[in-house]
Design a binder for these strands. Sequence first.
DNA 1: AACTAGTACAACCGCAAAACG
DNA 2: GCGTTTTGCGGTTGTACTAGT
Length: 524
Amino acid sequence: MPRDHINSPSIDEGSSGGSGGTGVLKKGPWTSTEDAILVDYVKKHGEGNWNAVQKHSGLLRCGKSCRLRWANHLRPNLKKGAFTPEEERLIIELHAKMGNKWARMAAHLPGRTDNEIKNYWNTRIKRLQRAGLPLYPPDICLQALNEGQQNQNVSELSGSDAQNNDLLQRNNYDIPDVVFDNYKAPQGPLSYAAAFPDISGTGIMTQALGSSHNYIIMPPTVHQTKRPRESDALFPGFLGRVSNGLSSFDPLQIGPFKKICRPFGLELPYDPYPNSKNPAPFSGPSTGSHAPLNGNISTSKPLSKAVKLELPSLQYHETDTNYWATCPPAPLETMDAYLQSPPAMQVQSDSDCPPWNSGLLEEVIHGPRVKNQSSEKSLNSSVTPADAMDKSTLELHETEWGDYGDPISPLGCSASSVFSECTPISVSSLDETAPVKVFHGGGKEDSTQLDKHVKFLRPDALLGSDCLEQDSDYAKDLAALLSEDFCNDYKYAASGTSTFSQGWVLGSCPWNNMPAVCQMSEHP
DNA sequence: AACTAGTACAACCGCAAAACG
DNA sequence: GCGTTTTGCGGTTGTACTAGT
């Protein structure tokens, strides 16, 4: 017998008796008879006082259940059937603004219930997550961002409690306004940088906005009070495995890169050393602001004037490295269609991508290494080796979050959940990578410090930047590499690096082994 | 035909705010 | 002001249906 019926005195039509509310309350699906009783009751007594329904009508349902049934199924003017495209669009927009405020969203959709919207959204999320795709189209991201900032400004000026501002701030997690510094209008052909699990939601937003092909995807919503802290699962990305039920990303295997080929660029500016306890050898992070590793989960203390964003607009897919690798340049309208039949080009079998099958890659990697060992030295002297980085990172995990029970990130996710579900990497659009400082530390870091930062970039990102001379051999090689072999199961020498020109070093990201290019700003 | 995975929908649960006495 | 009740909300779960294998 289904659980719902365990307490039911009569599974079928039995609840229609007029025992006056003395029977055991029934659970499970409502029968037409029960519906009729409830409708009749409401007609006579009006809505409200739901606990009285049982007493007056004999309906063996608790008031809560009656209210829900009435609200979701029986009340007049309910619109049945699938959501229209317009409604879907509106839901997405509203969610970007409000987050999981289903009731509020329902208020904007006449005839629709919060439950319907919630179910729709959850289904949509699952679908998108499964496909490794983003939830929000860029225009909505931009809209939400603008409104969020406007509200912030309004709040600062008037102290009003703007709704969105409230949403943005209620988590008490600050995202330094500086993160907006990276925002640039879409430009250039290589703006595929996908929104990526980033240091901060705002960063994601910003980055996403930086490209017309960027989207924001969100992590599964996690109830802060219900989800126990998964201390042992902190930063799984660093630990080598992210498990969220939707994807299993092993950064050490560069999983997504194995099978997916797509031009994209990303920075890896998250801070493995977000606070003073673990000073980063190269800092980015000292920006201190948003925290590193997680993306969004700001481990830092609130900063003045920081922008606090709520989950919706800032949410992105928990892990999905897949996401930024597969992020489709598709408008919202075509999103679903895309989901149904994603471009085949995005997936390649492993057999098609043997590791190290690219002579070009080796050329790119090893060639420069020989002629620029000094830069490697320089790198080693400034950049923490992978193992050291990992260690420090782990230490950070243990210490940094101790101050926060199970905080909710600006994304609306608990820290632990985000840690367990987000890849601690961030990206930004290509057009903003090289020329700008990767880290903007919420005003806490001066330019001098910034100059010492090492920028980690996907090599393809360089193509869209001016860090490499467009006509240089390396740029050409890199371009060829990215177009032909980037999808291969390549693995950069984990500990090795190769130096391009101008201090750009090709190697792997120390903390996740992602292929990356870093720049020593003080490169000799 | 049997099985599985995905989807859509309905309903329940727990919590918190609001209302009430 | 305080305790209790009611209401509302959001998260989660269960189930039926469908499509694919």
